[in-house]
Write a protein that binds this DNA or RNA. Structure first.
Lengths: 197, 197, 197, 197
DNA sequence: GATGAATGAGTATTCATTCAT
DNA sequence: AATGAATGAATACTCATTCAT
């Protein structure tokens, strides 16, 4: 059912897509430098040479994948979010969105986590990725103006309210811990308690 | 003036030490797989062949370095800590110790952070590294029994009170943020607020 | 404005021509093996696949280009030459023609020079190219019969009277030397002095 | 007789030497870009990786080989030459030396010829190679001052008296022509006739 | 005829590891 | 213990060639 239809249904761009998916998966399992291009090609059912039709080189490949996943992440994070919401409600919305992403879209989330904690990413792409958080930063600023949020750097707010979710995801991924809806609700409370005034 | 004194001042085992230091530094800058053994040897002023007198292979090298740094970390974390201290005081002590480590011993801290967020470490070594946190887990258990600490998994407590420090360190390391004593005090409050009942 | 006119002005066969021109230019700059087919196609504003409509493969491509340029060369060399001319006059005519070719049609001349000094050409094509010099060899034979030209192999006559022009062209091409009409006249004298009796 | 003694007699530097010889031979037969490093290694009976112990990369390899062969060439060219000799005698000496080199040390000579007529060499190395001809240029200058040599650029003198030898070598190498001592003497006369006043 | 996406064999180069000294 | 020259398997990337459209 795959080979026979490949030429037809899998139109333009499908190979690029397959490569992106393969990259995420393999980098998650082995890390960037331990993942050969040939393996990526094989998993994507594509010739090694084909990679270079869509990406300039290995670095460009993860750069592009990173941007793409980061974009998907923020789309997810701000889904149904409205900047006119009250601060507490807005934060709750975003926080639950991010938690949902990290715990459902595990592959993507793990990939981002590795990119963000490793020297494999080059600085320009990292900067590019940061931009996407703008609405959250704006929300926090508003919250601080309204005396609802602690008067500390957004880095600090992020560290204590968002970053912990990544840890929980990692731990669950390694099979050490299983996160239920109740856990998530607890986690939200802890996040909010740490940043609220 | 270098060669002639090397043999004297740098007794037996000094080469191992130099290799460990070199590994930490280079892995921080480039990642595990992007760091060649030859570079490690060069920075340690040692022949490539010598590495294999002290370590079985590359994987064994980072494994050993990881354990070593993790041990140093916990020694630091529990310095002057006494299990008979009241919970709040005990936590404060440990938390400030860990923060001091992360912000002063940056090289070691960054190395651990990379090990913990990357597939470069094998599972046994990872497990080995976890053991060192025992006293903190005990403290939390006691705190929960005394109704001082939230009734959630230690993973959750760790995620919201300890893990954020690593983020702050990363951000400072990248030159995006400078952490003062005042920031640390704020951070402590946020950490405590998130886990206290 | 490019695509719509291509089909009109550049009738059939124009693509082949463009490919030949592109090949000459690129091989001059980088050598045969350092010139990818894709680059040739790009410079000729043609698809890579199109090359194989006109040429069997890469080797066939330079073979054909070589023959073509060699043919153009001899047409140039024997322009206005008449086998009934006196030997000295006939040689002068041919020599100046060749000099003019080498110094005016630099692209073609450099291409030939590279083909003749490199293992990139296969022997059959090389032989094919040699045939074109027949009239010059005949002239020399006549000159020897008339005791005007040294009794040595035509290879020797060629080496000392014709081959040097290629060197001058190379040197001028590299910007080390500029050749004026006066230089050419001197060169002719030197050529003639070396072969005359 | 080779394998059994390899480890002993073939001390330091022997591998480099073998690589240089292999490079000359293979580049002569196939050209620079058509010669894979692996083939060079195999012919030199050395591992591919070993090449990079002695040479930075492929370009550095031919650069070094070129300089080395060019140096051997000029040592040969000016053997027994004494700047105090009369011009005609000095030129005869050098010319015969060069002819001897080109016709005896065919491998080296062919290698130089290919380097000098191909874009494979980078400009710095080419310049470096040129320096070696100094004594010949000095001799020509003196000859011009003494009204013995034509008042033309040394490029022209070289083109007509030295460069032709390379052509004869090529032709002989291809099996089209066999050069005897008598031919050489003729050639010398032709060379001298072209540059003398 | 013409295209250009796709291929996969081939290439330069790197690097963990060994071993004779 | 220590060295470092040597290895060769592995890797990123290129490019001649094909073929479905």
């Amino acid at each position: 059912m795959r080979n026979d239809t490949k030429g037809k249904e899998a139109k333009a761009g499908s190979k690029r897509e397959a490569l992106v998916r393969a990259t995420i998966q393999l980098v998650n399992n082995s890390g960037f430098h331990a993942t050969p291009m040939s393996k990526i090609a094989k998993l994507a059912e594509v010739s090694p040479g084909t990679i270079y039709l869509y990406f300039e080189n290995k670095q460009d490949l993860i750069n592009q994948v990173y941007i793409e996943v980061k974009t998907a992440f923020s789309a997810f994070a701000f889904k149904d979010y409205d900047a006119s919401l009250p601060v507490a409600e807005g934060f709750r919305k975003i926080w639950y969105n991010i938690a949902a992403f990290k715990l459902q879209e595990v592959e993507e989330a793990m990939f981002l986590s590795q990119c963000d904690n490793t020297p494999m990413m080059d600085e320009p792409s990292r900067q590019e990725g940061l931009k996407h958080l703008r609405p959250l930063l704006d929300l926090w600023e508003r919250g601080q103006a309204e005396q609802l949020i602690r008067q500390v750097s957004p880095f600090m707010l992020y560290a204590f309210s968002i970053y912990p979710i990544a840890f929980l995801m990692n731990v669950q991924q390694r099979g050490l811990y299983t996160i239920t809806q109740e856990h998530i609700d607890h986690a939200y409370t802890m996040a909010w308690n740490s940043i609220k005034l």
